[in-house]
Design a protein around this nucleic acid. Structure first.
Lengths: 212, 212
DNA sequence: GCAAAAGTACACCGGCGAGTGCACTTTTAC
DNA sequence: GTAAAAGTGCACTCGCCGGTGTACTTTTGC
């Protein structure tokens, strides 16, 4: 009789190996985000992943590859976070102000502390020489939001002759400002934490004044 | 008969030394901005400044000190840039839309390519451990803009019960978006350069819809 | 002119970190 | 049980870079 959930107790060669691999990427991601690329040593990654340095090098040819893999992973989760938030928060038939605020809040929450957008930006702007991750990364999330805004404009919820612009302005007024505030607070711990709800509410407010 | 402009031809000990010092800081600034702190070697700074490494170390105790000095210099020029732009562009009795656009444009121009705001942000976000430059840096520019917006609100040019918020929103809609576009373009050279005028015009447009 | 200040050239040290080689143990598959 | 796959521990190389020591030349003040 086959064991249920066999891969948890005895992962199998493949799964076990894959587990180490993601452990390494997890560790690397955490360190890259907090320390930056240069300050992160391969030994530190291995130690945090609870893996020998040699194993690490059996999985990844060099440090740079690890960085790129982390980058694309973060990018993927970012995309799905945004996609889900759009689908689940920006539903029609809901109070628009409320929906927009909930959407922005969700992005900010998910995108900070764990990984995602801001950290992603921080990471790529650190690296100048390294082979860039395949382009159009920054473009995609905006495109998804643009699509939804087009629908909102069509049913008269907002007035936006250029939905892409509206999406950009919305993001700038809410998500970007909130993230900026969080980042500032992180840089100077002594100040009290920013009121994300207020920032977003104000941003949505201004957006709605401009776009309907 | 005393020589005119003596400090140019024969700088004098003090001035000559000071000249080398700023040459070093200039070189360091350029390299820190393009390469980041870690990737910038002290030898490279000395070479670019056309100064021997030993001279460099006669002026600055270590690399970190150089970084901090660069930071405070950049911060100073940033502040004066903004202050001047406010005074000279955001004058009363000028078409508001035009004034706002000119102001934003000036900041974006000055703040990119040479040094200033964006690069400053990039620099501090690279460094985590290094002793932070004295706080309230990010705060100041906003404060100056807030003050002007208070005046604009007082004379009825804009409707803003909270001028600081208006200043933040204005910045987000114009300057931040423009800088973001420039940064993106730098990261991916293949795309065509962003139309800064258009971005700013659209931002001012949205701002005015929301704030008057 | 001359002494001192400023700058230079260059060799050098010490540490650190990326990546490797290798002999060894553990785990998995059958 | 056994062989191979996966992982480990550790010592090692090698290049890079921050920082120093020193003997030397250039510039400046007077």
């Amino acid at each position: 009789m086959p064991r249920i959930n066999a891969e948890v107790q005895t992962p199998g060669r493949r799964l076990r190996s894959e587990g180490k691999k993601t452990a390494i990427l997890d560790a690397a991601e955490a360190l890259f985000i907090t320390e930056g690329y240069e300050r992160t040593t391969v030994d530190a990654i291995a130690a945090l992943a609870q893996v020998s340095k040699r194993t690490l090098y059996n999985h990844f040819s060099d440090k740079e590859i690890i960085f790129l893999r982390v980058l694309s992973r973060v990018n993927e989760t970012l995309l799905s976070t945004i996609s889900a938030a759009i689908d689940e928060e920006l539903t029609t038939g809901r109070d628009l102000r409320e929906a927009l605020a909930a959407f922005a809040h969700r992005i900010v929450d998910r995108a900070f502390g764990s990984s995602d957008y801001l950290t992603f930006r921080r990471l790529i702007s650190q690296q100048q020489l390294v082979p860039r991750p395949p382009g159009a990364i920054r473009d995609r999330p905006l495109g998804m939001l643009e699509q939804r805004f087009t629908e909102l404009a069509a049913d008269g919820s907002i007035r936006a002759s250029r939905p892409r612009l509206a999406a950009q302005h919305f993001t700038a007024l809410t998500i970007s400002l909130a993230q900026e505030a969080l980042l500032d607070h992180e840089n100077e711990k002594d100040t009290e934490p920013p009121d994300i709800d207020a920032i977003i509410a104000d941003g949505v407010d201004a957006f709605l004044r401009a776009y309907r």
